[in-house]
Amino acid sequence: MTTTPESGAHPRFADALCELGLDELLPEVRRFPEATRTAAEAAAAVGCELSQICKSLIFAVDGEPVLVLMDGASRVDIERVREELGAEKVTRAKADVVRETTGYAIGGVPPFGHRTRTRVLADRSLLGHDVIWAAAGTPYTVFPMAPAALVAQAGGVLVDVRERTS
């Protein structure tokens, strides 16, 4: 399957959208001249609230990669992830593990369309908006989607794993 260069999405992610029957999202992909690698950069580029950005973060859970989808304004509480999965040890995955698992570099990891299937946890905070924005496979591209649809496409389980604010 070939992708249209004007979509801006990473070819693997564009192919995943087509395979999932989500071709209509391709024209929605927005490419920016400046990086949207961080949630703050993405929110500034899109012109949305920080919490409307969906971060796709890979953690090593007892040595196995697990994807955690988190709103851009929050941080993942590693202890809550550990408890949720009944794991011994949870750490941030190293860059090479992220690329090997997902097929994408940190800062451009989309919520689905990965090289390998992984367990996916999605924080409930994502459901607080009508639309959220996530990486489209590169550090310069994002796409909008309804949060519940995004979580469903990612095969995510809804959990509460964000850091509690005092």
Rank of each mutant, 00 (worst) to 15 (best):
E24D: 13
M145Q: 14
E24G: 10
E163R: 14
H114E: 05
L57C: 07
D77A: 07
E41D: 13
R164G: 11
T4D: 14
E49M: 11
P27S: 02
V161M: 09
E34K: 10
A60S: 15
A45P: 04
A148F: 01
P27G: 04
T101G: 07
A44G: 09
I53R: 08
R164P: 12
V109F: 01
A135G: 03
P33A: 07
V159K: 15
L69R: 08
P27C: 04
D160E: 14
V131G: 08
A149P: 10
D96W: 02
T101K: 08
P11M: 01
G86F: 01
R37C: 07
K55H: 05
L150N: 08
V120E: 07
R75I: 03
R12Y: 03
E100W: 02
R30F: 00
I58P: 14
D96N: 14
L121M: 06
I53D: 12
P33R: 02
T36M: 04
T2P: 13
G108N: 01
F13D: 10
W133E: 07
E79M: 06
A42E: 11
I132N: 09
E28G: 05
T118G: 11
S56F: 01
M145E: 08
A73D: 12
L17F: 04
T36W: 01
E84I: 04
E19I: 05
D123W: 03
A93Y: 06
D130M: 02
T141L: 05
W133L: 03
R12I: 00
F143S: 04
T36S: 07
D160S: 12
P5G: 08
D77S: 08
Y140H: 15
K94Q: 13
E34P: 07
G63N: 08
A73T: 01
G156S: 06
M1Y: 03
R162L: 02
D62K: 06
D130Q: 12
A149S: 10
M145V: 10
